[in-house]
Write a protein that binds this DNA or RNA. Structure first.
Lengths: 142, 142
DNA sequence: AAAATATATTTGCATATACAACTATAATCT
DNA sequence: AGATTATAGTTGTATATGCAAATATATTTT
């Protein structure tokens, strides 16, 4: 059934959640090539770009709770893709060489995802949507 | 940190998920008055509007997997808000009198949520966003 | 310097959701 | 009618995420 046939399609809660689930699915397909869930992949990309990034900063960037970041890091540690060092109160997260090796393939996943979005939705439309969503999200200061 | 300052704010996967989490939170606040999670509330509203609605149809309307619908129904059964009757292969879900009693308060929650959205985002903007999201979601036929 | 407060991270617990496999019934085909 | 396939729903299991409390360190105040 199409979204726009649902009783609830005018509700922002409903529509944003339904859309998010669909995007999650689409994104997961692309990232399955490197056997990463999108959220793990995004955390790893952030860490690759800025090695040593702290969990709190990652939480800001990924718009997730610190506790969720801890869990994501644990998974990436299990996969030997990041390491954590703790000094006093602060923790730094670094990518491993294995993560660096994976980087080119991750870029491919990202590109593939963007290509899929473009094909399914259109470049213009997806760009305008993402802007509008970000603008609205900014107004919801949690 | 604002959404639009994130490294990932141009990504539709990221932005739609972040927005959905924020909307979930906002919505949850309104529905906490009747001690229901938004998804439970929406299922119950559908059943109140169309008593006997089958799980499969509910899955279509709520854009959730059938298994998820089963789980939601279980919770609502525990709270004595719906009952299930099964005949052969098909199941019907009915609201209980308790659910009917709750209905006015649920309407209030819904109104309050819409009011919050209007105040935070603006009526025009939220309407245009929800339309655009629904349109895009329709293109993602899972 | 000791006490109080603030900050960064983790842990325990709870919830939402999905997928795949399973069960049970109905419909179709030969 | 019996065999096959399709449909509806549930169950087992796994993952993502959040909240609240706990821990550990830093900073500020007195």
């Amino acid at each position: 059934m199409k979204m726009s046939n649902s009783k609830f399609c005018q509700c922002l809660y409903f529509t944003s959640n339904a859309l998010a689930r669909k995007m999650e699915k689409l994104s997961s397909q692309s990232w399955s090539r490197v056997e990463l869930a999108p959220s793990h992949a995004y955390l790893l990309m952030a860490v690759l770009e800025e090695p040593g990034m702290q969990p709190g900063i990652l939480a800001d960037h990924l718009q997730l709770q610190p506790s969720t970041i801890t869990r994501l890091i644990e998974k990436l540690e299990e996969k030997k893709l990041v390491v954590r060092t703790t000094e006093g109160k602060i923790t730094n997260v670094y990518p491993t060489p294995k993560a660096r090796e994976l980087q080119p393939r991750m870029n491919t996943c990202m590109e593939e995802f963007l290509k899929n979005v473009s094909e399914l939705i259109g470049k213009e439309e997806s760009l305008s949507l993402v802007r509008q969503m970000a603008k609205v999200a900014d107004k919801l200061t949690d």
